[in-house]
């Protein structure tokens, strides 16, 4: 059958993942103390770096080991590989459902924390880097797949806004897990916010960002692993449901409005205005 044939073709990829996974897991969690807290290096980060170094697109001599076309077959496997992980998260949420419901208001409202990116990243993109309408795509959201779909739908991916959102998407794919692991472990050990709040905030991005983030929290505060996992998982599930709407109805109109106030003379402002008029 076809199913068996494609498996036979992809086996080198699975084998690489198996070997890299075992090596990464044997290395385990390594911690680096810095002044304000501790940075935790997790096995999943090692695994990512190792396969990046084995990737023929990144390190061309690796083409002798893994053909570039074969490496492309790994792409649809990312979402498949996250499934058992998501299932485990679900089974942690179920037993803690009462705690989740008690934290309901906090869980719902923290979805608006997405807007924090506008406060921090948008001004830097506009005033420090003098970026144009790329800043709208780049800074309106955390740039995961639903956000790309919104930008693609409204502006097209070849537009300035599309370039911005794709840039952040790719940077997120490459470095997002590291940023989340580092920020979460530093904040957990710095004790500014409660661990429950930090756990909820872990759910704002992709599955692997959540994994790195909640993993770092769980290592930093070992006693509350179940609670951390349950809150992060619930928040991530909520992000699937609400994130797109926060992005579409709140964040994107807000950055678009801000950009027009700051740069009223940008000729690029005209096109989306026309399409808006056409659709309303």
């Amino acid at each position: 059958m076809d199913t068996v044939k494609t498996l036979a073709r992809a086996w080198p990829i699975h084998l690489v993942v198996l070997v890299v996974g075992i090596v990464s897991q044997l290395i385990g969690v390594r911690s680096i103390p810095i002044g304000i807290g501790t940075i935790l290096l997790l096995p999943l980060l090692f695994a990512f770096v190792f396969t990046l170094l084995l990737n023929p697109h990144v390190v061309p001599p690796m083409g002798r080991l893994i053909r570039p076309r074969l490496a492309a077959a790994a792409s649809p496997l990312i979402v498949v590989a996250i499934m058992p992980f998501i299932a485990k998260f679900g089974t942690t949420i179920g037993p803690s459902i009462e705690e989740i419901i008690r934290s309901g208001p906090a869980l719902l409202l923290q979805e608006l924390g997405n807007l924090g990116t506008i406060a921090l990243a948008f001004p830097v993109a506009i005033w420090v880097f003098r970026m144009g309408r790329e800043s709208i795509g780049a800074a309106h959201s955390i740039a995961r797949e639903p956000n790309i779909a919104i930008i693609a739908d409204r502006y097209g991916l070849r537009s300035a806004e599309g370039t911005g959102v794709m840039g952040v998407y790719v940077m997120g794919t490459l470095f997002g897990t590291f940023v989340f692991a580092i920020v979460a472990s530093v904040l957990a050990t710095a004790e500014v916010f409660s661990i429950e709040a930090l756990a909820m905030a872990c759910g704002v991005g992709s599955g692997s960002m959540m994994a790195a983030c909640s993993g770092a929290l769980a290592e930093a505060v070992p006693g509350s692993t179940d609670s951390i996992v349950a809150l992060a998982g619930a928040s991530n599930l909520l992000t699937y449901a609400t994130g797109m709407y926060v992005s579409l109805f709140v964040a994107l109109p807000l950055v678009e409005w801000m950009y027009r106030k700051i740069r009223p003379d940008d000729p690029g402002n005209r096109r989306p205005a026309e399409t808006q008029e056409a659709t309303s």
Binding site: S103, A106, G113, T117, L120, A125, F129, A138, I142
Partner: peptide
């Protein structure tokens, strides 16, 4: 874009954590 992306992630994370902490 790398710098902006890092600020996007930090901003989203800290923003969410701050709201969650406050509401809790």
């Amino acid at each position: 874009i790398l710098v902006v992306a890092v600020l996007v992630f930090v901003g989203t994370y800290v923003g969410s954590a701050a709201i969650a902490d406050l509401v809790l």
